[in-house]
Design a protein around this nucleic acid. Structure first.
Lengths: 140, 140
DNA sequence: ATCGCATTTGCAACAATGTTGCATAAATAA
DNA sequence: TTATTTATGCAACATTGTTGCAAATGCGAT
């Protein structure tokens, strides 16, 4: 199983909890909020352990944290976890209704050129609105 | 005093607390974190009142909220508070050491064109790193 | 100026979110 | 299989944000 390999290759011990959480995030079609995770594993994984598991994954670059306009933390599986070298600049779009988070095209080079004089570790770009699907739902 | 006018024209009662907080945010050279505000007004303004004052300012568009990569809330005076019509897309740069937040150039039209198919209420763009001044300080 | 009403404030209590220390349990290396 | 290291659960605590309500204040009308 590749999730197991992922943990091993990042020198994280393979525990049931870590397997369950990483598999869950991996299979999700969009980003999961912290409360999504907490409610999903309620009664199964201790709240504190969940925090520690998530933080471990973040540190190893296995998942990415996206903070929305309300300050809520959302987590998404990082398919490019092995490319640690490049700055994290992936823009995202989050639907305020269904909470789906999808990737947007990257910022144009012309823009990055403009701001390259600054020392930049990462750039967060998050657009928010109500997606077409949810807008249709609202009409009903 | 223009701060008083600002409050009045936004149908907010002119209280000592509101005057103090808005003046403080207005005079600041960069964004202030919530804890900056809380410690500055400690013993003077109740914690709860401060939350309500800040929220009132946000609602009236007098200040802008910027959430950084750690989920910390930062507030900056909104010089363009009267132009409520346009989508909030002002990019910012935050120094992780001195916490200064400055404005970056706007995203190019070419990029906005690319994503205009989505329903977008606002776009948060926040670059983070250590500014030149702080990098110099570190060397010493 | 002052009266009366609406809004703001402070306080207490609570809810949500996140952290730390430590004993126990589980995973890996030997 | 044992020894060692790491992960987990629990309790306690810290931080951040919210709600209800009584008292104080701001402001328009007299």
């Amino acid at each position: 199983m590749e999730i197991i390999e992922l943990l091993k290759s990042n020198s994280l011990r393979v525990t049931n909890h870590r397997l369950a959480v990483l598999t869950y995030i991996h299979q999700a079609t969009s980003a999961l909020s912290h409360s999504d995770l907490e409610s999903n594993f309620k009664g199964e994984i201790d709240r504190v352990s969940l925090y520690r598991i998530i933080n471990a994954f973040i540190e190893k670059n296995l998942i990415k944290k996206i903070i929305d306009a309300e300050g809520q933390k959302n987590y998404i599986f990082n398919a490019k976890h092995n490319q640690k070298e490049d700055v994290n600049i992936q823009p995202h779009y989050k639907c305020k209704t269904c909470n789906d988070i999808i990737e947007l095209p990257e910022l144009p080079e012309t823009y990055l050129e403009k701001i390259k004089g600054l020392n930049i570790d990462h750039i967060n770009v998050l657009a928010e609105g109500v997606c077409d699907v949810c807008k249709e739902e609202d009409k009903k």
